[in-house]
Design a protein around this nucleic acid. Structure first.
Lengths: 347, 347
DNA sequence: TCCGCGCATGTATTCGTATACAATTCAGCT
DNA sequence: AGCTGAATTGTATACGAATACATGCGCGGA
């Protein structure tokens, strides 16, 4: 327990073995709980292990056997609170299983995605969750070549070596629109995501289906494009407010966009929800901290994390076979940003 | 470039060498840009490298030389947006230098901190930033034993093998209080951090010094303890509002606490800043998204990240010597949550 | 007594890289 | 030609753990 300032060689199994009067193989077996070793010997070795504060070196195992007990995650933007909430659950589950997390951020830049993929391969990860929705298949191709299990999120396509976890936007937006419909809303706007990104299209499509489901028709005049961040939501809402005919409610592509919407509405002196209702997506913790508290579709980060791990584990056990197509569903959390439609807008 | 489904051995320098008709040493030298190899040979090897899409395996180097080109970061709560903003800058700087980030989260639990430290050692990181303010020295002791450079944040103590980056709360809170003083405030409350945590005491002390600097005296009746999160700020503010004599302004320990304060004030129908001014700490991006936009002391995450890396690099180059004591200063960002003191409270 | 079998443990090897050291080449000069 | 030293390139090795394989020990049955 004291600080050994002059240790020159790293403590390893061989040294432990010498101290315990056994071979390194026995030490390894004890550490890994092999039943082949006599309980008496095991106990003795465990004592020495404890005594020396031995910490194993998984790097050696990784080199020899190619397994690193590490899963990688590639996300577009760690600054969007949804990802930290996801990572928290993901990491927690990993640590429980003695796995490690390898993180990479792309910031919507393709070179960074390519580089992230390369780093994942270098670190010999046992699997990767790719949440960077801008993925072109080209960029993640090297993962396939190196036979590293892949889980995409909301790519909605599964192939040999890759699984997918779809987020059920159809279901979520349906709940959102039904809720607004019940409050009397008929003109519902949508703040979408960056164009050219697959998930943006999926979300918009889902929203359109939701309108249809509620017997409303889609009007592109009520739709704007954001950037999944506050600034984009703000700008989109301001643009929407310039229209002669305005929606009475707005649904957004994620909570950050909704925060931007709230900010724009505050700036323009429009009351929420009295004059305009707002619904977000993600259900990040902070949605309950803003004013007014945001009604949003909550996608449980824990479910998503567990689905990813399940898919990863599955692919690892079935290398070369086609992956799983899983799905995660959200629930509508009604708070203060939605209310009945303004009187003058009632039909 | 095509998917080789039946590669059975991992591509390595030896294979490249054979293909190029040179020795593996030469290949290694080319990869590492050694000047010892003839340009003609180098060019040829580089071509083969490209042709085979060779990705090196740093794991081997880590095993042999103990250097992993990885810095670890231990944080208490990835859900607090300040940390992602820090990590973004930290990771960016690392990736530029071909380093990797190893992340661990403690959630204010000591066993998790101990475990995180252990994981850092197992992964052979070249240095660790410990932002988990609950550190008892005991918990990070193994890092010292393994001679891993350490950077603490706001521990304000430097020793052999560890550096520290102090956050200049004294300066920041002085700016905050001066600002409030200029607006006429004399009764200024404080929402602190969890008790028993070193940084909480540092922050409270700094706030008290700031009051003193502005010629105000500290009143414990205006002080409450939070938890660095929204809920704690909310509860603390509600408690503060029960006092007969109330402050006209509140300064918090971080922005999340301030968000909680805003929420509590909204819930109690108190206008901001007309009836109560609020100042946060951190200057996270979302401080500009809430309503009203939060006046806060912005600590540049980039500066902090760079200071940490500077200290880490220094300790790595000077192992065994005492580390650096650095400091990061914030700036007051005045937005909408602060205003002149309510008329009836003017002195 | 001795054989054989199973349990317990030991020995040897491999993973991919960087580098110390050895070997080779080659130009320049006498 | 022969020598010298610099410029290139090659050979051999170690890092630490897991495991295939070898070995040894003890005990029961013939």
């Amino acid at each position: 327990m004291t600080r050994n300032s002059h240790e020159s060689v790293r403590l390893n199994q061989r040294i432990v073995a010498k101290k315990a009067g056994v071979s390194s193989a026995t030490v390894s077996r004890v550490i890994n709980g092999s039943p082949a070793v006599k309980e008496e010997t095991a106990k003795h070795v465990r004592r020495i292990l404890e005594e020396l504060d031995f910490i194993p070196n998984p790097i050696a195992t990784t080199l020899k056997y190619g397994r690193s007990k590490t899963y990688g995650v590639i996300i577009p933007d760690i600054t969007n609170p949804f990802y930290p909430e996801f990572l928290r659950n993901f990491e927690e589950a990993l640590v429980e299983n003695d796995f490690e997390l390898q993180l990479a951020t792309t910031e919507a830049s393709e070179p960074k995605l390519v580089n992230s993929v390369r780093r994942m391969i270098m670190r010999q990860v046992d699997g990767v969750v790719v949440m960077a929705s801008e993925y072109e298949t080209r960029a993640i191709e090297p993962l396939f070549n190196h036979r590293i299990p892949i889980v995409t999120v909301d790519r909605r396509r599964v192939e040999e070596g890759s699984s997918d976890v779809a987020i059920d936007f159809e279901d979520g937006y349906r709940k959102a629109v039904v809720h607004l419909r019940e409050l009397g809303h008929e003109r519902i706007g949508f703040i979408g995501g960056l164009i050219g990104i697959h998930t943006s299209e999926v979300r918009l499509d889902a929203f359109r289906q939701a309108l249809e489901f509620s017997g409303l028709k889609y009007d592109p005049k009520f739709t704007r494009t954001g950037d999944y961040r506050v600034a984009g939501g703000d700008a989109a809402m301001r643009s929407l407010l310039k229209e002669a005919r305005q929606p009475t409610a707005v649904v957004t592509v994620n909570d950050l966009s909704a925060f931007g919407v709230l900010r724009a509405l505050h700036a323009c002196g429009i009351q929420i929800p009295k004059q305009m209702s707002v619904i977000g997506w993600d259900g990040i913790q902070l949605a309950n901290a803003v004013y007014p508290a945001l009604t949003t579709v909550h996608v449980p980060a824990r479910d998503l994390a567990q689905a990813c791990i399940k898919a990863l584990d599955h692919s690892k056990a079935n290398i070369g076979r086609r992956g799983l197509q899983l799905s995660v569903r959200g629930s509508l959390v009604v708070r203060e940003s939605t209310g009945t439609v303004p009187a003058r807008n009632r039909s």
